[in-house]
Design a protein around this nucleic acid. Structure first.
Lengths: 334, 334
DNA sequence: GTGAAAGCGCTAACAG
DNA sequence: CTGTTAGCGCTTTCAC
């Protein structure tokens, strides 16, 4: 119930708590080897656990960082977290994770919570490209470094790591066209998510390049969830237009679309090619019928960690912007 | 850079810091309404953020709890975390998540890290049924409540929430048999994971019930990962035995098996029925060709939270053991 | 080498 | 109703 403190050790060994503190910190230049040994032994014997709370309060550094993600079902974010957590741990940081459920208000709450815990820095993939700008600004003003990943935001100059969604999307659609697809449906994402806009642009560009006239009836607003993806697919089907491929905004929405098509006995990929820009290597395993593009999620995590650590340790918040090129691995479904 | 403290507010308003503390805590019985208002206003104006570190040190309560999970790619654990985080937040707790990667040593490190942060309690799904028993015991002795979920452990009397894997598995295999399957392969999990043993037992029991002789060649040791699942499937195939169904230990391993079968052009579920006991509702959406059983992951999270909170607040660590019945929803794949 | 003392920001007696 | 005071456990000058 009651933890052992350095004072307990000090009494036991018969020295002052300063000495114990020094010994436990391994300050061998200021502590006699024998005292050192004795202190460390008794600490171990008594089951001493350093109270990080006190240390943090004293040093005003928590060695905690926060990761805020918009949702938790896509393997992408889980992979990101796992990698980031590993890297930050090696750098001596703990990680607090918060999920915003694609809701800007929850995101704001998460950020407040993290700030109150005095985390040393935050990595965030925002729900919305502009809604919480003021909150982000305040946090940075308070001296907490922020690194944005995967999704870009507007009107604020800040460090970010993302991939070239526009190019990836362009490649993806070009690939479909080169493989004989004529009528490609695009289930797009919300305007408020930067990647959605970029991917939509890539879709348009690829069509243009091959002189395929753009028909806006082939672009359906999908949202971010599987249900919304399914609705979008149904909406398109009700138009009765011909199609031989569907390019979805995310794994999640294309998944919804897929379930609708399967219910109607479309053969995939026999009749319809389904594809999206996927988050992780896992994608092709989990959704084996979806032609996928690998995004270098681990690289993204590494870069985010590196930048955040730099901001934290140098207090230099000069924004660093990185666009990863992405590993374009196109695979026919098995 | 520098945070506002209650002392800053006290000076600004012209009262003592105790009054500020009281006012900010909303102690309206001990603070004059006007002072209250004035303090709260200046706090807001000055951008005061309560330093949780100091509060925690003072109150020796962090209002942080830890969740330790064995892996992070199965939707099950992500769903668990999301639900648990939500519920704990409502109860006023923050959540620190740690992933052990199915490695007992990493699990031990995670636990130490959490203890050093002085978390108030831990929910854990262990990697191994016995390897870290001593660590668990120590933690409990130190007065930190532990709640185990999903996987059971051996030789220690502690709170746990799990489902009736044995029964679920029995039902699942029975279902296959009743639907005409004769030769059911079981890709089993490691003995060190309680659920694996229970599910294997359920498999045996169902066969027995229908007087189907048990043939151990139909049981292949799969591990916990997709790769191991794939290997197990290949190993079985090399035996040349006939089969019409595969019952895998987890989503992840059955997924590996699936990819092997698809590569060999088996029709699923036409030729082979694939199934497993799945973690979440999402399962049938993500792996639509797998007949799935829903595990009430949200219920499991709720119960775990409830028990943990009870332990934390009452300091009564009397173990509470709950076996959820699981929502048996068998679905033919689409 | 070691100890004494100050202080990180906050809460909670206790005393008015 | 409000102020004073004493810590929570630790690190870090500054003396000796």
């Amino acid at each position: 119930m009651k933890y052992i403190t350095i004072l307990d050790i000090a009494k036991e060994v018969g020295v002052s708590k300063s000495t114990v503190s020094r010994a436990l910190a391994g300050d061998s230049r200021n502590v006699k080897p024998e005292t050192m040994r004795k202190i460390q032994e008794t600490a171990l014997k008594m089951g001493y656990r350093r109270n990080e709370l006190a240390v943090n309060l004293r040093c005003s550094m928590t060695k905690n960082i926060g990761i805020v993600i918009p949702e938790g079902i896509t393997p992408f974010f889980m992979s990101f977290i796992q990698q980031a957590q590993k890297e930050m741990r090696d750098k001596g940081f703990r990680t607090i994770i918060a999920v915003s459920n694609e809701d800007s208000e929850q995101e704001r709450e998460n950020l407040t919570m993290l700030e109150n815990c005095r985390i040393d820095g935050i990595m965030i993939c925002p729900c919305h490209k502009s809604r919480n700008i003021q909150t982000y600004k305040n946090i940075i003003e308070n001296g907490i470094p922020l690194v944005f990943f995967d999704r870009k935001i507007e009107g604020i100059d800040v460090s970010q790591v993302c991939i070239n969604d526009n190019l990836m999307s362009h490649f993806m659609v070009e690939y479909l066209i080169r493989n004989g697809k004529k009528n490609i449906v695009h289930i797009s994402g919300p305007d408020a998510v930067s990647n959605a806009v970029d991917r939509y642009r890539g879709y348009r560009e690829a069509l243009e390049k091959f002189h395929i006239p753009y028909d806006k009836r082939y672009v359906i607003d999908g949202g971010l969830t599987a249900e919304e993806g399914a609705n979008a697919m149904e909406q398109f089907l009700s138009s009765g237009l011909e199609f031989d491929a569907v390019f979805g905004f995310t794994e999640t929405t294309i998944l919804g679309a897929k379930s609708v098509l399967q219910k109607l006995n479309y053969r995939i990929p026999g009749d319809i090619a389904l594809c999206c820009i996927s988050g992780t290597k896992l994608c092709t395993l989990v959704y084996p019928t979806i032609t996928a593009v690998e995004q270098p999620v681990n690289l993204m995590a590494s870069e985010s960690c590196r930048i955040l650590q730099h901001h934290i340790e140098t207090h230099d918040f000069t924004p660093e912007k990185i666009t990863l090129r992405g590993n374009m691995i196109l695979r026919e479904s098995t």
